[in-house]
Design a protein around this nucleic acid. Structure first.
Length: 591
RNA sequence: GCGCCCGUAGCUCAGUGGAUAGAGCGUUGGCCUGCGGAGCCAAAGGCCGUGGGUUCAAGUCCCGCCGGGCGCGCCA
């Protein structure tokens, strides 16, 4: 059972289970469930598993339990409904408990100690040098960044590493193309664009003349052996790329603890290869050094060294893992990489076990591919959408909407809001759905600014903050008034806020950021429904008003914290408190 | 051919083995003298790909089939 100990919701669940166990007079394996909306109860215990041994029907057992249980302080009572024993929570006590959790926690609400300070290395983003990032790289970058935040929130020590693709045969093709076909003027104007042109051109030419591939291999070998000309050019490519990548990372506000590319492991591979050979894990096969994995059910061996002596992607990944284990002493290593590399990681993890590194937990946090309506993206064929271009389009669209709806905001703030909203929309579009599914790229879907989207959640925050600002300071030290948990809207909101720690925990446990995204979307819906019906600043009396203000403050806090975990920022305003009459299509007649 | 992943409303997606499967978009109809409508309320829309099995209980677990995606020794 999912459990985040100490928080009020977990305490209530435990009270229910313990009350039933006490009534039964013995410990029993019990699960809790949430009753459907139309049932008037807050927590349910299915009695079906108890029926078999006791030779009674589930409704009978539920009925007996309903009469005999003695509910704890967070529970108001129990009723039988079919085979379920339903509990009603003691609203004032439960609400006060949740608000106390929230006020005590603030931006740390939902944190837990499940990670127990253990280190988890998270490998994410990892774009290839000498090419622009495509929308395909968005997923790894954003999911990885969210996982870093989630792990920090649940008590781990996350170490983020950007494993740049800055080594390998691809540079052979690039060096060959550079030497023969470079347009120096274009290169000086926009080095990455020119390198991309060369990359595409090489592919076309090599199709006509396959011997070019051999020449490229020679160049990559030269690079690997330290040829000065190859080295100098390669370093230049990497430098240009890093400048380009940084622009995108700045826009996304994604940071890394380390950016150790594949080339960093250049001098660390020999040790891995020779050790694997010495202890018999690796064998030679047709001049190549391989690790057979048949005993692990993998018929394709991992190739450590090519027959011409060159190293491969897998070699570097092996050396990388060994380095990370020595340097960071992690309990886990997460690889946020597309599902097309599943086999590679299965091989890698098995090889690591064979090499004596089986005490670390390795996880391939895989995700589905981003495809275009016409098929798979291919940089070589020019069939690709660049990430930078998507981000800029998102900000432009958000800006148009801000200008339309909120023309009264100062120019600088409109620019800032457009950025927060546009970039947030892109991130949310990705993080709000299960990562394992493929995505067909669609501008309008990706840049949606209404419905289940980041702006909707950000707007929720802005509305909540609007109330708080207008009401002056929230009195967080006054006890929560149980009457502010009386309406259906308030009660639903409180129960939902109570479950946020579970959402954070589950998202981290399963490496599923969308669990948090979904939780926040529901929070937004519940808040808007509340907002529509329940007066806060115009509440009948001060006690009610203060407690509703606390509730609104709680919504704002969870929204900001939760979106923060997803790497999405919130603006303080999306509108001015003092609209300028007669400007904008959306102003209508409210003057 | 073999292996892995996916299949839920017209479209895009949620759905820890528990009660009558939920959202967003789109469609239709309502709600502005209140904390701003980037909002709210409601309607229509489902053989959860399909056939078996396990279970008190299956959209969820297992097997077969169909459809789609990805991968399968010197690319990354």
């Amino acid at each position: 059972m999912l459990k985040v100990e100490g928080y009020t919701f977990d305490r209530a669940k435990r009270e229910a289970v313990e009350a039933v166990q006490a009534a039964l007079g013995e410990p029993a394996e019990l699960t809790t469930a949430l009753p459907p909306a139309e049932v008037d109860a807050d927590l349910a215990i299915p009695c079906f598993p108890l029926a078999a041994q006791r030779r009674k029907s589930p409704p009978e057992i539920a009925g007996e339990l309903a009469r005999s249980v003695r509910p704890g302080p967070l529970l108001a009572g129990a009723q039988a409904a079919g085979g379920y024993l339903n509990f009603t929570l003691a609203r004032p006590a439960f609400a006060a408990g949740v608000m106390a959790d929230l006020i005590r926690g603030g931006d740390r609400y939902g944190t837990s100690e499940v990670g127990a300070g253990r280190t988890v290395v998270i490998d994410y983003s990892a774009p290839n040098v000498a090419r622009q990032m495509s929308v395909g790289h968005l997923r790894s970058t954003i999911i990885g960044a969210a996982l870093v935040n989630l792990h920090r929130h649940t008590g781990y020590r996350p170490v983020g590493d950007n494993h740049l693709g800055d080594w390998g045969t691809q540079f052979g093709t690039l060096l060959y193309a550079y030497a023969h076909w470079l347009d120096r003027e274009a290169y000086e104007r926009d080095p990455i664009a020119e390198l991309l042109r060369l990359y595409v051109m090489f592919d076309e030419e090599a199709r006509k003349d396959p011997a070019l591939r051999e020449r490229a291999r020679e160049w990559s070998l030269k690079l690997e052996r330290g040829d000065p000309e190859a080295r100098t050019l390669w370093q230049e490519f990497v430098r240009h790329s890093l400048v380009e990548f940084q622009k995108t990372y700045d826009l996304l506000e994604v940071r890394f603890d380390h950016t150790l590319g594949e080339s960093f492991y250049e001098d660390k591979m020999e040790e891995v290869i020779s050790q694997a050979r010495q202890n018999g894990v690796a064998t030679t096969d047709g001049g190549a050094v391989i690790i057979r994995l048949d005993d692990a059910g993998i018929t394709t061996p991992l190739i450590l060294q090519r027959s011409d002596g060159a190293t491969l992607y897998a070699t570097r990944d092996l050396a990388t893992a060994v380095y990370r284990i020595r340097t960071f002493r992690p309990a886990k290593i997460l690889y946020v990489v597309g599902s097309d590399q599943r086999l590679h990681f299965r091989q890698l993890f098995e090889a690591l076990k064979k090499l004596g590194h089986g005490d670390v937990e390795y996880v391939h946090v895989d995700f589905g591919l981003v495809r275009l309506p016409e098929g798979r993206m291919s940089t070589r064929r020019g069939r690709v959408v660049f990430l930078q271009e998507v981000l800029e389009e998102a900000i432009d669209r958000a800006r148009a909407l801000v200008d339309e709806k909120n023309p009264e905001l100062p120019e600088a703030e409109r620019r800032e809001v457009a950025r927060i909203v546009g970039v947030g929309a892109i991130k949310y579009a990705d993080l709000s759905q299960n990562r394992v599914k493929n995505i067909v790229f669609d501008w309008d879907r990706m840049l949606a600014l209404d419905g289940d989207s980041a702006p909707y959640l950000q707007y929720t925050y802005v509305r909540a903050r609007g109330i708080i600002r207008k009401g002056g300071d929230v009195a967080l030290d006054v006890p929560f008034d149980g009457r502010a948990a009386a309406s259906a809207q308030e009660w639903a909101l409180i129960k939902h806020l109570a479950r946020f720690p579970d959402a954070v925990h589950e998202a981290t446990r399963a490496y599923y950021p969308h669990v948090v995204a979904n939780h926040l979307f529901q929070l937004a819906q519940l808040f808007h429904a509340f907002y529509q019906e329940i007066p806060v600043l115009q509440a009948e009396d001060n006690g009610l008003r203060w407690s509703r203000q606390q509730l609104v403050w709680g919504v704002a806090t969870v929204m900001r914290t939760g979106l923060g975990l997803l790497g999405i920022r919130v603006p303080e305003r999306m509108y001015s408190r003092f609209p300028v009459p007669g400007i904008g299509h959306g102003a209508k007649c409210r003057v």
